[in-house]
Structures are given as C-alpha cells and as structure tokens.
C-alpha cells in the first residue's frame, strides 16, 4: 500500500464510512430493537439484585449500633455513623478497591503520594488523552500490537488490584484517630504487625491485636529491635518512639478503638509524647474529630 498523508488517510476513512452508511440499515427499528433488548436485560438485572438484597437482609431495627445481617449482597445499611467511635474498618464501594490497594502498596509516608495522587492523575491524563497517544490509524487488533498490549494489561492490573483490595481487612488509611495510629499505619510498623486499632493487617510479626505489650517492652523493641524486627532508634526521634510505644501499650491486646490491659503502663508519656513529636504522630490530621 502506498504511503498516505494524514489528510489522505482521513479522506479515505470518510469515503469508506460514507460507503458503509449508504449500504447500511436504518437505526430504527434495527438498532433500536437490539438496544431495547439489552436495556431491558440490564434493568432486569438491577431489579433482580435489589430484590435479592431486600429478601436477604434482616428486618432492620432503628437503634444505632445493632448488628445488621445481610445476605450475599450485604445489609440494608450499617449502624448510624458515630464520629465518637474512633475506629471502624471502612470499606469503599467495590469499584474503588483498586485505589485502596494502591494505597496499601505505597503506604510509607514518603511514597504515599505515589499511590494517592501521582498514579491516579497519570491514569486520568492517559485515559482522556488516549486518542492522541495512539496515533496508529489501523482499527484491526492484529495491526495494533501496542493497543492490544495495553488493552490486555490494564484490565489485568485493575482486576488484580480490585481482588487484593477486596480482601484487605482494612485499608492502610483505616487507622483510628488516636495519636500515633496514623504514624503506625503509615510507617514501617504496619508492614509487619496486624493491629486492629491502626487498621493494619501485616502478618510478618506478632499481632498486636491479640498480644498486649507494656510500655517498656514496646519502647525497647522499637528502639533496639529484636529477632526479625529492626531497630528504629536511627529512624525515629526519641519522642516519636515514645509516642509509638505509648500508642502500642495503650491499644494493644484490644479490639479497635478500645484500650488494652497494659494501657496504664503508658499513662506517663502517652499521648503527651505524640504532641511533642508532632506531624503524623500527633494524629487526627484533617479528620480530627476533636476529642
């Protein structure tokens, strides 16, 4: 085929399309017929899901805080929001799971904005600008190797992220509002330790939800490390370590939002040390509920 200029290629497409249209069929009733069938199926699916959801959720009492059972499509709604209850495992709608998983991957404070801002922005720019990126005029997939690769990889990446995001017990950002929680969740700790209050699900080291740790032991482990756990005295300042140890002593061995059996051992330093340490350690941030 002779090389065509861009102008010639566009004219050629217009000629070809005009030909296809001339030899085409009327939108009504042909396309409308197919459109109607598919629309009816889609509305049927939505109604079916609504009925299944409704048939399976338990009668819903109005008192806040009562557990609401649901079927495979979940409960009618959960307990009324109570900003005073500090920790809750927030799950977004399923179609945001891929974003949540990205945040779990880039959860150290320095990398956080890669997952939260940079990658989503790049995705949006690529999505909107795609017609200008793919300049290949051919429409057959066999002649579009790059587009084919993109078209295969993007769904695989999105589905994988969505799958792992759906299994995450709590997102990296699901930490309670307690001082130190955000630092625990956003820092190295959560990579290894499960800790309900910090919304962390690491499984390398012992779970802090299940094991109560007193202040002195926590401080010692953070500063000097032990076994597989690295020493953080070079990473964190004195106050930062005090804050983390205090936070761990106060909330370990307890469900999210509650104090554990060793809370008293931290009373002297916590949460004062977190205030002194400032930043992420002071907790709350934009979501501070002012308690």
């Amino acid at each position: 085929m002779p090389r065509l200029t861009a102008r010639e290629r566009r004219d050629r497409y217009q000629r070809e399309y005009a030909f296809q249209k001339r030899h085409g069929k009327s939108f009504f009733p042909h396309a409308v017929f197919h459109d109607t069938i598919v629309s009816l199926i889609v509305v049927g699916i939505i109604m079916g899901m609504s009925i299944l959801w409704w048939a399976q959720f338990e009668p819903v009492p109005l008192e806040p805080g009562v557990e609401r059972a649901g079927g495979i499509l979940g409960p009618a709604y959960e307990g009324r929001a109570d900003p005073g209850v500090e920790a809750y495992d927030p799950k977004p709608e399923w179609y945001f799971f891929f974003l949540f998983e990205l945040l779990r991957i880039f959860k150290t404070p320095e990398l956080l904005i890669v997952g939260s801002v940079i990658i989503p922005t790049v995705w949006m720019v690529l999505l909107i600008g795609w017609p200008f990126i793919d300049r290949n005029p051919d429409r057959r997939l066999s002649r579009r190797p790059v587009a084919l690769a993109v078209g295969v990889c993007v769904p695989i990446v999105l589905l994988t992220l969505t799958f792992y995001g759906s299994k995450a017990p709590g997102a990296g950002g699901a930490a309670s509002q307690a001082p130190g929680a955000a630092a625990f969740a956003g820092g190295a700790c959560s990579t290894c330790h499960a800790f309900a209050d910090a919304g962390s699900a690491g499984n390398v080291g012992p779970s802090l939800t299940d094991n109560a740790v007193d202040y002195d032991l926590a401080y010692d482990l953070i500063a000097n490390g032990k076994g597989g756990m690295p020493a953080f005295s070079g990473t964190y300042s004195e106050d930062e370590m005090k804050c983390l140890a205090g936070y761990v002593a106060t909330h370990s061995g307890a469900p999210a939002g509650e104090k554990g059996p060793e809370a008293a051992t931290a009373a002297e330093v916590y949460p004062a040390a977190c205030e002194t340490a400032g930043g992420l350690f002071a907790g709350g941030g934009a979501a501070a509920t002012g308690d």
Partner: peptide
C-alpha cells in the same frame, strides 16, 4: 453518594477518602 447513607461504613470511608485527597501536595 456513598456518604449520604451516613452509616458507619459510609462515614469512615469518606474520612479516609478525604484524607487521601489531603496527602496531595
């Protein structure tokens, strides 16, 4: 739309979502 139900899940998911926003420089 997710926040409007104002149950626990909606509330905390929104807090997290808005905080994620807040990490942008």
């Amino acid at each position: 739309g997710y926040l409007l139900v104002f149950d626990e899940r909606a509330y905390w998911a929104t807090v997290v979502g808005v905080n994620i926003n807040g990490t942008a420089p």
